[in-house]
Amino acid sequence: MVSLFSVEGLSGLLFFCFIGLTLAGAVIATSARSLIRSVAGLALCFLGVAGLYYYLNSPFVALMQILIYVGAVCVTIIFAVMLAGSSELKQLTQRNGLVGPLAILASGILVFALAGLALKTEWLAAPCLVNRGTVEDLGQSLLTTYSMSFELISVVLLVAVIGSLVLARQGRDK
């Protein structure tokens, strides 16, 4: 029995705020008519997910989530919207009216199946922990066990930056 005004109660309340933020942001991101609003919803959703990461004992990943997703990805998408995009307001082409309900049905079935699977399975906890998962442990494993993947991901990022520059530059003289 946890009282609402104890520490656990307040943190539980905050947890619900983060869940609400995540789901509301996701719904806004997929259903808003104008693209700028849906990018704003995406940023809200990422903030909520960062809060959930905080509850999962990983403050470093939570801060990286805010830094990378809210700070970089959302801003980049906003720049692309300003460069390329009108909103979906004018609805250039009409499509079959069944698409919306069928999409809701399909994603509902997916959510139902995944959530049912998650709730029904007996998850077995690990018998022992090899470390506590602090920022120090994270840095050590990132530079020892996963150092190869770490270097590879930097190469991937470099190639992505060069590739996007080349792609966006083509046809600019026209």
């Binding site: 789901l23 997929t30 959703c45 999409a103 994603s107 997916l110 995944l114």
Partner: peptide, 9 residues
């Protein structure tokens, strides 16, 4: 699962 479903939609 909910995030996945909303994204799929």
């Amino acid at each position: 699962a909910l995030l996945f479903g909303i994204g799929f939609y």
